[in-house]
Design a protein around this nucleic acid. Structure first.
Length: 684
RNA sequence: GCGCCCGUAGCUCAGCUGGAUAGAGCGACUGACUACGAAUCAGUAGGCCGGGAGUUCGAAUCUCUCCGGGCGCACCA
């Protein structure tokens, strides 16, 4: 609504500038005036043109206003301040349209969003939650903005053959001296016990959390000789896992698969689902790397270093680096080690070539790994070449269902600490001549979640005096230092449940629990989304467990209030709006005029900003804008709720109008919440 | 040393491609429930927007510089 009007006004002003001054302007800056009394849309264009036109801004503004004349949807224009052009909307027309907004034309977006990507060797923690919530919300926003939601694919990359998994395997084999059979039994026991108790602490990912921390500590203990031996053990274990076909790899597979399943369950509690789980084991076994390596060598992106510290390695020049003539580039990024093994960035380059369909003959085999309650299926990569014994080309899996999306845009939701690595992948693509793809590869970066010293102490961790002085302390899976995702969710649900029990004594056990979960998830997701990406979240239970003020539950509460009102008049939102649209336009305009009704107009105006906010979110890659919008809409509704009593309104036409106001806000709140991945409860 | 991010009210954060009197939540203090359920609302106090210089008609926003904090810069991932 507001978006369409802004575009129309911008276009009209462009036409005026062209016709009157012969000026071609890329775009007209449009903004929201600080006060409704100044109008609804404003532009400082005349101020900007003052220099080129050599005229006073006010004169230009007046000339533009005169030339504009009548524009559909606008009541008029005026010049204000130093030379602003302020536009006033035709309120009656706006409100009528806002009740049943026309469908927008949208482009088809082909996108591949990679998020979560937790090493499958331990329980998910709050840092992973920020990643998953951001990524999931971003995918929802892309789907909302696309005419074809099915072309937005969500992937969760699984590093099932990396050092982190190797560390836990070392723990099982050398600290706990377990056999493959014993590990298999442990996985089964954990699953049984967790299902029976409902406690995440009984599950395998929690078990691994502790074992991983213990193993990491073990590496650093003992004599120098012992440390060296343990380091070697770690390397040997890693190689055995990468190679596959041995007992060590079997344990790695058992653990990474079981932990991955737990991650999917944890994320599902937050409404987060995935389409595809590409695994590193397939990148290796299906020879994606070999194909990528050939291309990298051929294009000259990789070269073999013959001198200096990287002698014997295949390396690539870092983005923006200046290479001195004849000298070895000591700063180059090693892609293939001197022992012939590939680094993480190398594997990532291969994976990204696949994402853009640039690895001829390379495709993942796949199978359904997890079926969600809503029927959606999550696939994982497999090496299923043996299924097709003859005729399968070398290096190609046999995809059963999932295919690469043919992405126009590839978004990697990865925290800011990996921006150098991401830049290297991008640079490799560019170096290979895939300039378009390099531009379409977007690092969706965000800052980490850390713990406040106070929070760390509450959790019982010993904090050094130095750390006590810091504003926040980095979470570390290696040290077992952090807040586990399931623990936090459980804590939130318990807190919400207490509030629900106090207010909803009449409702059944199951329903109260369901409402508590909705509120808990609303609180958690909003907590992660209200902060912009580039600010570090210093986690504190006090803030995270809050259900008041700028929180998810605040918005949900506005939804419940509106539903209660509609319930009392036994009317559905749709019906209320249909009845409203039959009202006379002049009558509606009357309800929107006068200072006592200014807040109602502001509410309609805010409700009409949905598509504008969505566009801003997409343009700025920033879901926080939507979170803020939803909160402001709820806040203005609560204000309205106190000032204008709907059910006791005596004027029947005004009552219809007020009801329609509530109904529109309900619809817009629910859409915004849905994009944020938050449910609107029926009661709370 | 180089690169990225941050510095706005006591605390946690917004501030859209520079624009009209710098905003919200929490906390503090005053008030409003025989209720469209107060997980709410109204009000008060609280800011040389880290310091300085520059560009501009105009700077919290752009440039430079300094100060303070965080994170990267592995033949780890």
């Amino acid at each position: 609504m507001v978006l369409e009007l802004q575009k129309r006004l911008g276009g009209a002003i462009c036409a005026v500038l062209k016709q009157k001054y012969g000026l071609t302007v890329e775009s007209v800056p449009l903004e929201t005036p600080p006060d409704l009394r100044l109008g609804e849309i404003a532009t400082p264009i005349a101020l900007q043109l003052a220099r080129t036109l050599r005229k006073a801004p006010k004169v230009i503004a007046q000339e533009i206003v005169t030339a504009l004349g009548q524009v559909e949807g606008f009541a008029g224009f005026e010049v204000a301040g130093a030379g602003y052009i302020n536009a006033r909307l035709d309120r009656g027309a706006f409100v009528k349209d806002a009740a049943f907004p026309a469908r927008r034309q949208k482009p088809a977006i082909f996108a591949n969003v990679e998020h979560t990507s937790i090493n499958p060797n331990k329980a998910a923690h709050i840092g992973h939650l920020r990643n998953a919530v951001l990524g999931d919300t971003w995918a929802r926003l892309l789907k909302a903005e696309s005419s074809s939601p099915d072309t937005v694919i969500v992937q969760n990359y699984i590093d099932n053959t990396g050092v982190q998994v190797a560390d836990v395997v070392v723990g099982f084999l050398h600290l706990e001296k377990k056999t493959v059979a014993e590990v298999r039994q442990l996985v089964a026991d954990c699953e049984k016990r967790a299902e029976a108790s409902g406690r995440p602490a009984d599950a395998i990912d929690y078990y691994c959390w502790d074992l991983y921390a213990r193993t990491s500590q073990w590496y650093g203990e003992g004599t120098d000789k012992e440390k060296a031996a343990r380091k070697q053990l770690r390397l040997d274990t890693l190689h055995a896992i990468e190679h596959g076909g041995n007992e060590t790899a079997e344990i790695a597979d058992l653990i990474s698969t079981a932990v991955l399943k737990r991650h999917l369950e944890t994320m599902l509690r937050l409404g987060i689902e995935y389409d595809f789980l590409p695994r590193e084991s397939e990148i290796l076994h299906l020879k994606f790397w070999d194909a990528a390596f050939a291309k990298l060598k051929e294009s000259g992106v990789l070269y073999k270093e013959t001198q200096g510290k990287n002698a014997g390695c295949w390396v690539m020049t870092r983005p923006g680096a200046e290479t001195a003539e004849g000298e070895a580039d000591e700063d180059a990024k090693v892609i293939v080690r001197s022992n012939g093994t590939v680094t993480y960035v190398g594997k990532d380059i291969a994976y990204h070539l696949w994402k853009f369909h640039l690895l001829e003959g390379c495709e993942f085999g796949d199978e359904v790994f997890y079926t969600y309650p809503d029927g959606r299926q999550c696939y994982r990569s497999i090496d299923n070449r043996s299924v097709d014994a003859n005729g399968t080309p070398y290096g190609t899996g046999v995809p059963v269902h999932f295919k690469a999306s043919g992405a126009d845009y590839v978004f990697n939701v990865i925290d800011a600490r990996q921006s150098d690595a991401q830049a290297n992948v991008k640079e490799a693509l560019r170096g290979m001549g895939y300039v378009t793809q390099a531009d379409q590869l977007r690092h969706f970066t965000y800052e980490m979640v850390a713990l406040t010293p106070r929070c760390a102490e509450e959790l019982g961790y010993a904090i050094s005096d130095e750390d006590k002085e810091k504003p926040y302390i980095e979470v570390s899976g290696r040290k077992g230092f952090g807040v586990k995702a399931d623990d936090l969710i459980d804590k939130l649900i318990a807190a919400a449940r207490a509030e629900v029990d106090a207010r909803q004594a009449g409702r059944g056990e199951a329903e109260r629990q369901r409402i508590a979960a909705q509120i808990a998830i609303g609180a958690l997701r909003y907590f992660m989304l209200k902060v912009t990406r580039n600010s570090v979240i210093a986690f504190d239970f006090k803030d995270a467990l809050s259900f008041e003020g700028e929180t998810g539950p605040y918005i949900q509460y506005a939804v419940v209030r509106i539903r209660n009102i509609l319930r009392k008049c036994e009317a559905a939102a749709e019906a209320v709006l249909t009845e409203f649209s039959a009202l006379d336009k002049g009558c509606v305009a009357r309800f929107l005029s006068g200072s006592e009704n200014e807040d109602i107009w502001a509410l309609w105006l805010r409700a009409g900003r949905r598509s504008l906010v969505l566009e801003q979110c997409i343009a700025g890659s920033e879901p926080a804008f939507l979170a803020k919008h939803a909160f402001q809409l709820a806040q203005e509704f609560n204000n309205f709720y106190h000032r204008h009593h709907i059910l006791t309104e005596e004027d029947p036409e005004r009552k219809k109008f007020l009801l329609a106001t509530a109904a529109v806000v309900l619809r817009e709140l629910l859409i915004a919440l849905d994009w944020l991945g938050i449910e609107g409860p029926e009661a709370m």
